[in-house]
Simulated scan of single mutants.
Amino acid sequence: MDFYSVLLENLIIILGTSSFAVSGAFAAMQKRLDAFGVLIVAFVAAVGGGTLRDLMIGDIPVFWIKEPYYVVIIIITALLAMFFWKRLKRFKIILFLSDSLGLGFFTILGLQKGLALHLDAGICIALGLVTGCFGGISRDILLNNIPIIFRKEIYATACIVGGLAYFALYYAGLDKNLTEVLSIGVIVLIRIIAVKKHLALPRFY
């Protein structure tokens, strides 16, 4: 793996962890939890999906136990969110963007973990879906909210389309780093367009 690939991978890890930690911290502050509660929700949001993924593929101890710097990133991010939230006027927008970015980053991380194990493309996309979505599901359940993935917003679909885009670009022979960036962009863009245009999957009731 070349220098730029390692740099991009570490950047995706840091940004993905920070994004979901921010989304967890802000969601917890909306519910007026105390500082410990905010840290717990931020932690669960950031590691929930990756933890389930690692348990599914038998990669134990799970990633944040083997690599404790994840915990450091989460704590620092959550503390910064608590200290500076009053200066952030567009509270809901930041919560939405951080959640969307975390979804994109973590979906690709989960997908790549499947590729490293030489799993089928469908299984890799499923691992990306779990990694991207389950942290948000755990966060919302802790806060007694209906998880976004089960509501009208297009959420899991964005992960699947982003995963399909990744493999389409991957098999087309595009540069790996560019493939990752474009796939993350697809996921985030779908989320933004879906919310802005009020797009949703059909209901059967």
Rank of each mutant, 00 (worst) to 15 (best):
M56T: 15
V161L: 08
K66Y: 11
F84P: 04
L7Q: 02
F167T: 06
K89M: 11
L119S: 05
L97E: 00
A121W: 09
I73Q: 06
Y155I: 00
G162V: 05
I94H: 11
I75N: 02
M56A: 13
K92E: 15
V6W: 14
T77Y: 08
V44S: 02
S23Q: 07
P202Y: 06
Q30Y: 13
G37Y: 05
V195R: 10
Y170I: 10
R151I: 08
I74D: 01
L15P: 05
S23I: 07
A200I: 11
G110W: 03
F91M: 05
G128K: 00
N145E: 12
D59H: 14
L88T: 13
C124I: 07
F150A: 06
V195W: 10
M1H: 11
S18Y: 09
L11H: 05
A35Y: 14
F20V: 01
F134K: 03
A35D: 15
L182R: 07
K196F: 12
L79C: 14
L88W: 13
S18E: 11
T77V: 11
F63E: 15
R32V: 15
Y4S: 14
V72I: 14
I12C: 05
C124N: 10
I148E: 05
L15V: 09
F150L: 12
K113F: 07
I192T: 06
L15G: 08
P202V: 09
R203L: 14
D120C: 09
A28S: 10
A116W: 12
Q112E: 08
L88A: 08
I14P: 03
I12D: 00
A27D: 05
P147T: 03
D59T: 10
M29T: 09
L143F: 10
A46P: 11
G104V: 05
A172Y: 08
G122F: 10
G185I: 00
R139W: 09
I14A: 10
P68N: 08
A78I: 09
L164G: 01
D120L: 12
I148N: 10
K66E: 15
R53E: 08
I154V: 05
I187S: 00
V38C: 03
V47I: 11
F83N: 09
K92G: 15
G136D: 02
I137W: 00
L15N: 03
G162R: 00
A28G: 03
I76K: 00
L164S: 04
G122N: 14
I123N: 06
G110L: 04
F134C: 06
V62R: 11
F63I: 13
Y69D: 11
R151M: 15
E153W: 07
L15C: 09
F106A: 07
S18M: 12
F83T: 10
T51D: 02
T17A: 02
F20M: 03
F167I: 01
P202L: 14
M56I: 15
F106H: 04
V188K: 02
I76C: 04
R191N: 00
F204K: 13
I40S: 02
L79T: 09
